[in-house]
């Protein structure tokens, strides 16, 4: 027999722990001056997020988060961060007016989300029953029902690839020309 108050099952404890880790590491990440530090903290946040996914019954997504988000995207970020030597003076904090605006925005948002979350009423308080979507079942469902979306997503990735190649090619040529001029 469950009591009215939330029983702290192990799952709930895990959830709150992971939530804390995510929030704290993200908060730290956004406040770092050093971009590499920021990226690393964000990696930690994504790891915790992957574990959260696993908790919420999506093991495939957890793995995909680590492989794609952390392994590809954040690595790419680190490559570019380390490639671009930024002049230290330009990374100034925002002007004071901007800070005010940003703070106001943040407050508005917090207000909005809290209101929204708690205005949904008892429907929002439904406890989540644990369930797991096995990768096989998930894959079958995905490719049976949403094969068109998958195709489009792959097309999108192809386009992104071509675009990046083109941008990189032009930039490389220009840089080469610049180096030629300097010589």
């Amino acid at each position: 027999m469950f009591r009215r108050q939330t029983t702290m099952t192990i799952y709930a404890l895990l959830f709150y722990l992971l939530a804390a880790v995510i929030l704290v590491s993200t908060a730290i990440a956004v406040t770092r001056r050093n971009l590499v530090h920021a990226a690393i903290f964000l990696v930690a946040s994504f790891f915790a997020s992957a574990l959260l996914f696993y908790l919420l019954g999506a093991p495939l997504l957890a793995m995909l988060e680590i492989i794609v988000y952390v392994g590809a995207i954040m690595v790419l970020f680190l490559f570019v961060i380390m490639m671009l030597k930024e002049k230290p003076a330009s990374n100034r904090p925002a002007a004071r007016g901007r800070k005010l605006w940003t703070a106001t925005l943040g407050l508005i948002y917090l207000l909005a989300v809290i209101l929204l979350v708690f205005a949904t009423g008892p429907r929002g308080q439904t406890p989540l029953t644990p369930a797991v979507a096995s990768p096989a079942a998930f894959g079958r469902y995905l490719f049976q029902g949403h094969w068109l979306g998958i195709e489009i997503a792959s097309l999108l990735l192809l386009i992104a690839l071509i675009g990046v190649l083109h941008l990189g090619h032009t930039a490389a040529r220009r840089t080469a020309a610049g180096i030629e001029e300097e010589k």
Binding site: A12, V113, P127
Partner: peptide, 27 residues
């Protein structure tokens, strides 16, 4: 049972706000 759904949403919302503040507030 894990947590009420609203808690998940709250986490998501807070994370969203943090991300938004980063996008808007860092030069």
């Amino acid at each position: 049972m894990i947590v009420p759904y609203s808690h998940v949403l709250l986490l998501s919302a807070l994370l969203f706000v943090v991300g938004m503040l980063c996008a808007v507030g860092r030069r």
